[in-house]
Amino acid sequence: MRILPSGTRALLLELDSLEEVLAQYAALLNADLPVLDLVPAGRTILVVGDRDTDLRSLAAQLRTIAPGEHTARSGTPVEVPVRYDGADLADAADLLGCSPEELVRRHQEEEWTVAFCGFAPGFGYLAGSRFHWDTPRRSSPRTRVPAGSLALAGEFTGVYPRESPGGWQLIGHALVEVFDLDREPAALLVPGASVRFVESS
């Protein structure tokens, strides 16, 4: 783990893999640090202090925290009901070298973990562990991806919380809102949470 500078209020922890990020993030959440925010990403965790945080002693504290167990945080997975009716389902299956039926089966059997959020409020990047997911993005991104679209890109799957441009392969849509300001909490998919997708007829 490397600690990189990020201004007068924050430090950037750099790790070697997404697995290491998830494990370290789980440990940091339990460490009761004097911080305003922890922002996991693909290979890094941004640790944001407040006006009173001394970054030097925070860095020393961060070096003493051993990685945790990332599946420990949420015992029962969040179940997301979906329909696999996306416009790119056949293309995505081709790209992954399987049939659409096989893709749908693997996607439901996979034990997904929310690795991090970004791009838009409530947009979770979900990583799998049982199957190999490496889906190229569409060569030309869509200018409008409908809200609720279930999609694949790279090693991740995700659900678009609202209509936006996007280059992910659309394989279906979710039947629940992943980000709803009228719900508490608004975000359904939080970093570290386990997720299962369940086809709804």
Binding site: S6, G7, R9, A10, A41, G42, T44, I45, G118
Partner: peptide
């Protein structure tokens, strides 16, 4: 770069 977190002032 793999996307990473930032704060204002970056």
């Amino acid at each position: 770069l793999v996307s990473e977190g930032m704060v204002r002032g970056a």
